[in-house]
């Protein structure tokens, strides 16, 4: 098994001034292994950035412990110079252009690859001599993406690195990420809420909601770990009886129920006999449903968030293998 490079135990964070409000992080524990691509997923305000800030010593924990490369990262150069953290809104000195930023990164990161940086800058059509202050939102994000990839740090955090990037540029980022990671395996933590876009790149998924971890699993075991059963409501009820229901929606005499678990070939055949349709649940749908379910269980006001993501493609799933 891969070596564990991050260990987080009982991490709790209260922001000053949040009063009696809920903590930003509430007893979070997880670990991260070397040379994998992780997805840190969750809604806005779930606590993703807070976790990454504490891991990179840019924020303090209220309670709990954090070990990165086996050490406390706080003011620890031996840990921090192995980490690259690309923030969603990275600030640069006022008179910096992209070239300046790359030079500074080259000084800091031992594995910096200048030719990769130049190639990526060209791919993203980044004006290297224009002051960063004057760049568009997308170009600013591109500067971060270039630094994050070209630094080849042992541990790289991308905190929603795609803001302002159009679909073409985002695809370019994902492609270059896979390419470079394949050639130079390293640990990458990608926070995103464009889950569908990044799902296939991830080896492991950690989902955080309201300061707590609600999913922590291999991406491959999550894929196909839930299934949506649709058809005549009465029959759907019979078929899903006794199973863990993640989500339920109805439409007249029809119902669509998302259940946890993998169906056997026999169960698939049974569903077919009942005239029920089985549809796959994407990672994004799974995260949305689990997140909503959590909110409902908590009984919080926004719990019933009207996020009834429609089961768009009820493509009939064939039993295979």
């Amino acid at each position: 098994m891969s070596a564990e490079i991050i260990r987080v135990d009982g991490l709790t964070k209260h922001y000053r001034g949040s009063g009696d409000g809920a903590p930003a992080l509430d007893g979070v524990s997880f670990s991260i292994e070397a040379d994998k691509i992780y997805g840190l997923l969750g809604r806005n305000g779930a606590g993703k950035t807070t976790i990454m800030s504490i891991l990179t010593a840019q924020g303090f924990a209220t309670a709990g412990s954090v070990r990165v490369f086996g050490q406390n990262p706080y003011e620890n150069e031996r840990v921090l110079n192995r980490i690259c953290f690309i923030r969603e809104s990275q600030k640069y000195p006022d008179d910096f252009n992209a070239n300046h930023a790359f030079k500074a990164a080259a000084l800091f990161f031992d594995n910096w690859d200048q030719s990769l940086a130049m190639r990526l800058a060209k791919d993203f059509q980044l004006p290297l001599k224009r002051r960063i202050k004057k760049l568009s939102r997308g170009q600013l994000s591109a500067v971060g993406v270039v630094i994050g990839l070209a630094s080849r740090a042992e541990l790289t955090f991308f905190d929603e690195p795609y803001l302002g990037l159009d679909a073409v540029a985002r695809q370019l980022f994902y492609d270059r990420l896979v390419e470079d990671y394949t050639e130079y395996p390293r640990t990458i933590v990608l926070s995103s809420h464009l889950i569908d876009e990044v799902a296939n790149l991830l080896e492991h998924v950690i989902v955080i909601d309201q300061g707590r971890i609600i999913m922590d699993d291999d991406a491959e075991s999550l894929r196909g770990s839930a299934v949506a059963v649709a058809g005549q409501a009465a029959r759907v009820e019979v078929f899903t009886a006794g199973r863990t229901v993640i989500h339920r929606e109805g439409f007249g005499a029809l119902a669509s129920v998302t259940i946890d678990g993998v169906l056997s070939a026999g169960e698939r055949a049974e569903a077919a006999e009942l005239g029920l349709e089985l549809a796959p649940v994407s990672l994004q749908q799974l995260v949305v449903r689990r997140t909503i379910k959590g909110a409902v269980d908590d009984g919080s006001a926004d719990g019933a968030a009207r996020q009834g993501t429609k089961q768009g493609d009820t493509a009939r799933m064939e039993a295979t293998r």
């Binding site: 994998k36 691509i37 994902y174 492609d175 896979v178 390419e179 990671y181 394949t182 395996p185 296939n200 790149l201 991830l202 080896e203 991406a219 491959e220």
Partner: peptide, 11 residues
């Protein structure tokens, strides 16, 4: 395979 299908190489 990873590059073509844009998937994680480990997968």
């Amino acid at each position: 395979f990873a590059a073509f299908h844009r998937i994680n190489p480990a997968t």
